[in-house]
Design a protein around this nucleic acid. Structure first.
Lengths: 409, 409
DNA sequence: GTATTTACGAACGCTCGCTATCTATACTGT
DNA sequence: ACAGTATAGATAGCGAGCGTTCGTAAATAC
């Protein structure tokens, strides 16, 4: 069973290919319904072939039939239109953090059917499993999807995830927490494939999908921790399994990778915790600054960026330092990967243009091709969205037998 | 004509698919000839289908028939065996440097038919075109392949290459030299697709193929200049077009990217020129060292590594410094890419274990997953080999309609 | 109310691959 | 030396699928 053999087969396989071609054409234009004539044009197949495939897909529940469009007042007999029946195989995305559980349900076309968040002040591992179950049920009932319809689940986990076993290294967030228990638990609730992946990877997938899917994307998740996901032409790059761990990049002053400490040098230098600490120090050194006014004793990361946005020179110096450290750490990877865009998400992304411009200025000096530098538009929902996206990809890959075909005319 | 449509079609396409499946099966086992029964087993097709496909491929010249194997003394009627007829579509690879032109001809199965090198003490652009023509003809006649049989050509060029237009930026090597002229010239000699790519990319492709094709490879070309190619699961990663330009990574003491200077900070710091300079300085500072003895006035890069291999502490210090600078520059990319292996080729690779071990020690401190660190086994032929490889990929991609197919059983 | 336009539906012919059968060839054992 | 056997190649019939062509249904325009 050497994988990767070029498939061959009889006419039944041909039928499967053509049905898949029709389904794929419908998917591409989702959510707009299509007339059969349009499908004929797009697939290059004959009308009877398409009609037969459509019948079959209608029976199987993958497509749904629409009445004639009342807005489309054209001549002749009105065409029957079909569109993807999203409910045929809805998927579920799961984002579990120590203080927040988010569950999203999406239909086949990628429409969000429901999105339920629940926050709490630190659960134990056991409680967390219970909460997850509740939130899943809530999301399902809000989406009006029975549990047994769910076709795939993807869960997000911090740390480094082994793609196949689902084993996780470096997870500090919840004591006693195990992703394997999570998978088992979810498998008990929903009878379908359950996969697990790194949260930064999933966020990257969501952002890449939102940007159109082509090119190389480096999606940075910047909060207390620092990670990145790499998406190349719509596909996640995993490397050996730990790709994108930018938090462990050495800085000019710190290059210690300690197995005891789950955080790396760059995280220690520019994580949200570190930014707040730099801000506090700067406020102490300059008590009359706007920064000190804004923050007081409990000075926060947000305060630093707020003061910098108000052109406080003390805060701006802090931002400048953070941006410089970050840009110098990231520049080598930008040179090597040469991405189309670098997108920054996570808590620190709320800093906005102040930080982005500072990074952009530094990065411009250190790279050849300057990638677009953007903030993530998806904000905190990026991870769940990416989880749903990956679950969708899984479902589609199972359903469509041929991924692509090079024209040989 | 939106690209990427899932292909569908009639029975003639089915036939094409099955013929391609048979051809692919033969290719996979090349150069070993296969019996029809084996093809039946490997493709999963019925015997008449395979037989018909084999007939067709024999007529078209893609396969050649072998007599029964005299060594295989089994019962029953001896089977006729078929194998890839490499001469069906030979390809040509071209590596053009300022002082050396290398041309290789390969058959479809990847066997080298000929490899011709010619060195000269600096040609003008006009002379170079002439020399290229001569060397191509020499390689063709040595391989006994008529020029009109060549199915694809790939030429290697230093600098950053635009994949489609063939335009090149940053080429300092030969004054008045233009890769566009090269392509025109070759198109005039050989009537087939001519492509151009970065030499580091092509070397990476060759090394990846030699290693088996899966996983992520970072292949460094380390000579006077410094570049790298990235191959992910057998496919080249180009980014926007300038991926792998590690020569421009900033060092601790130098981060200037000057459009005037075609070399980047890391090249200036650890390029072979810089290593020699460091060695000369060290020799001056320590006149009684083995390094000073070996090198004298005209101390070379090779002398530094030779002295270090003989455990000269002065030379070892130089190597240590080079390794440290290199490892610190490369570590971020290793963290982000998380490659299966890092392979070092080019002139400096001749340094051998002395340098490799030093780099390995440094890299181990700065990364999470430690990739295999190796020297390129292909030495100076890596670029031509990669050029032939890419030309082969091009030919196969044109011939095989379906690249892969996910089994849906 | 008729003509026109557009789309759906059914019948026919073609190609292709699979199953089953028959023939060809060389080795083995008595 | 001859019959037996095992393996491979060649051929005929069957079924499945696609494409082409024709007829029919349903809406709009005059």
């Amino acid at each position: 069973m050497s994988k990767g053999t070029v498939g061959g087969g009889g006419t039944t396989m041909l039928r499967r290919i053509n049905v898949a071609a029709v389904l794929d054409a419908v998917r591409r234009s989702a959510p707009a319904p299509l007339r059969v004539a349009e499908l004929v044009e797009r697939t290059g197949l004959a009308r009877p072939t398409v009609a037969q495939a459509v019948d079959e897909l209608l029976d199987a529940g993958w497509l749904q039939q629409h009445g004639p469009d009342s807005a489309d007042r054209s001549l002749g007999r009105p065409a029957i239109r079909v569109s993807l029946r999203g409910r045929a195989a809805p998927v579920l995305g799961l984002d579990v953090g120590p203080h927040r559980v988010t569950v999203g349900v999406s239909d086949l076309a990628g429409r969000k059917l429901s999105l339920v968040r629940r926050s709490g002040p630190g659960w134990t591992a056991q409680e967390l499993l219970g909460v997850i179950g509740e939130v899943i049920n809530e999301a399902l009932s809000e989406a009006e999807v029975p549990a047994e319809d769910i076709a795939a689940v993807v869960a997000a986990s911090p740390g480094i995830v082994d793609e196949h076993t689902g084993r996780v290294q470096l997870v500090p967030s919840v004591p006693g927490w195990s992703a394997i228990d999570l998978i088992k638990h979810v498998r008990g609730l929903l009878d379908c494939p359950v996969m697990l992946d790194n949260d930064a990877n999933l966020a990257a997938l969501a952002i890449a999908a939102a940007r159109g899917g082509t090119g190389t994307l480096l999606a940075v998740q910047w909060g207390e921790r620092l990670g990145a996901g790499i998406v190349i032409d719509g596909r996640l790059h995993r490397g050996t399994g730990a790709a994108g761990e930018i938090g462990f990049i050495a800085t000019d002053t710190d290059d210690v990778i300690n197995p005891e400490d789950s955080r790396g040098p760059l995280e220690r230098a520019v994580g949200s915790e570190a930014i707040a600490a730099l801000g506090r120090q700067a406020a102490l050194d300059n008590p009359q600054s706007r920064l000190a006014e804004l923050g007081g004793e409990q000075l926060d990361t947000a305060d630093v960026f707020a003061a910098a946005a108000e052109r406080d020179p003390v805060a701006q110096a802090v931002v400048q330092q953070v941006a410089r450290t970050f840009a110098r750490a990231l520049a080598p990877s930008v040179l090597v990967l040469d991405p189309t865009a670098v997108v920054i998400g996570g808590g620190v992304a709320r800093a906005g243009a102040v930080l982005l411009d500072a990074i952009s200025d530094q990065l411009r000096l250190l790279t050849l091709n300057h990638p677009k530098l953007e903030l993530s538009a998806l904000a905190e929902d990026a991870v769940v969205t990416g989880a749903m996206r990956m679950a969708l990809d899984e479902v589609w890959q199972r359903k469509l037998p041929t991924p692509a075909m090079t024209s040989t005319t």
